[in-house]
Nucleic acid binder design. Sequence first.
DNA 1: TTGTACGCGTTATCAA
DNA 2: TTGATAACGCGTACAA
Lengths: 335, 335
Amino acid sequence: MSPTLVDIARETKTSVSTVSRVLSGGAMANRISKATRDRVREVADRLGYRPNLLARSLRTRKTNTIALLVSDIANPFFGQIGSQIERGLAKHGYSLMLCNSAEDAKREADYLSLVTQKGIDGLILVPITRNKKTLSQVVPEGLPLVILDRPIPGISSLVCSDQDQGAQILCDTLDRAGVKQVAIVCGPQHVMTHRRRCELLSSRFEVLTRHEGPANKETGKAAALKLVTEKPPAIVCTNNFLALGVMDSLAQIEKPPIIGVFDEIPMMHLLPLPIVCSMQDLPALAEGCVTQLMKQLEPQANGVTTEVEPIVLPNRAVTNRAFDVLQFAASAPAQ
Amino acid sequence: MSPTLVDIARETKTSVSTVSRVLSGGAMANRISKATRDRVREVADRLGYRPNLLARSLRTRKTNTIALLVSDIANPFFGQIGSQIERGLAKHGYSLMLCNSAEDAKREADYLSLVTQKGIDGLILVPITRNKKTLSQVVPEGLPLVILDRPIPGISSLVCSDQDQGAQILCDTLDRAGVKQVAIVCGPQHVMTHRRRCELLSSRFEVLTRHEGPANKETGKAAALKLVTEKPPAIVCTNNFLALGVMDSLAQIEKPPIIGVFDEIPMMHLLPLPIVCSMQDLPALAEGCVTQLMKQLEPQANGVTTEVEPIVLPNRAVTNRAFDVLQFAASAPAQ
DNA sequence: TTGTACGCGTTATCAA
DNA sequence: TTGATAACGCGTACAA
């Protein structure tokens, strides 16, 4: 059994409160005589004392832990963002508990329930649920909360990329390459990001076909198999997993279509297909979450409660070499 | 403030213990009269009672939480494995706390210290530390522990891929393609996996050059730039990140070298470089962790303590299309 | 079937 | 500068 304050108190002939003050009293520690202070520390060291954080949190109602509930940890996007958020939080003395709802509403609910019961000081959520009401039923009133990546109407504590701008720059790039018609491969429409991206695409191009399904590779593959016969000039996928599936099935085509995609595609320069992708600013997203959270955790000293305003970040369009070649050929005749 | 057992007891005119028994007594609940049982449940529902898990864990010394401390969550390999481990644990009633040491020994130590103080029922660790002794100083005696991916001498509770077999099949494949000499790009030698892979490669091929650095893209890029002039027939990278960097820099080469790599390369069929990779069995690794852990958490009913033996899984070599073409040309003359 | 009383390890209040 | 003592919210042995 790990030693407790009582053990140290006994060993050092003092009281539990004294020991507590020395070991974790902060400024209080200085109000204890140097003699006993040293003695307590010495014994604590020798016994290998380590505070029981459960007990401490129960008493102080503070866990110094932030939960990050993402929609799919297998997606490198969230792995990277998790990694960066964690670094950011560490600077403020918080540690991160990373959870995975796996795009499953039930598991999201379970986890929300679990982490709040376990006691967390704040929550960063990539929501499956898109309803403010159902959310407030599981998330305690007043818990510092940041919604990440997928806006929920009515919640202003938000950090996300600018959906419209991201879609526009993708469309602009396709435009410049002479694209007029596209096929769309998209994730579930009840997810805000997928839906909005589809809408914007439809408003700017003639949509030949639209395949919808779970936002994974399999959906992309299935869609690509059907699209082989249709030969659209461009295929736009509403996230990276879909695109991976699509491209996987499009390998053997002689004159592949242009692939438009949101999120990063690893190794895109090397791929023989022309790709344009609308990339999010990952570091800024991560940092946004942290500052957004800290605003709620460390309220201003001067009674002024700083308003929490959404942080909406710009995306940038990136093309690969295969695309650049194509674009040149297409725009050359016009000049 | 969230309601507690006391609130319900007051409201329902019973005692705290009765309420506790009804709400979380398990079999005990049946030893309470149906009348009060229903009344308690009704009130608990109405008040929206949710047990405080901190308090419960403090009392029961059980958190139903397993910590998974990985070396780099930004690596999709660990994202996927984390996702699968979590699913596996959920079936046994445990939830997962995913932490990231980011290949940093200090952060590993910090996290080990943190999670054990917070109270966990078990730990799955992808170690930076490779020493049993230093590990046992932070990890409490008797805590169910599983070492994942990187063996530590003296610890038998291990789940990993067969290093040697994995390297051998990679070498075999290169052999069949006619490769005699290789350049190596590897991660830090103090990490078991990188070191062992290097050793085996050296024993089977003439090593032209060897670049070592942190196991990330940048190291790979730097190495590739130097290798451009040397033109080795094959470049072997000891993990996927290194390979990504290498390939990124090797895009424009007319006759690219063969790339040998451990771990999965996304989209490898599509890449114009010949690639062979030695892939680990992810689902088996994840499941191995869970069973290994459960053996320690749920000791056999019949006093026989089941021994914990290392789980070592076979890898399989996968080649892409560019490689297959190459191999055919090389082996054709021999036939 | 139910209630009383105690302990889990810590911090906070009050008095000395 | 220090020490009793009471919480925090919960589970459980013991008694009724």
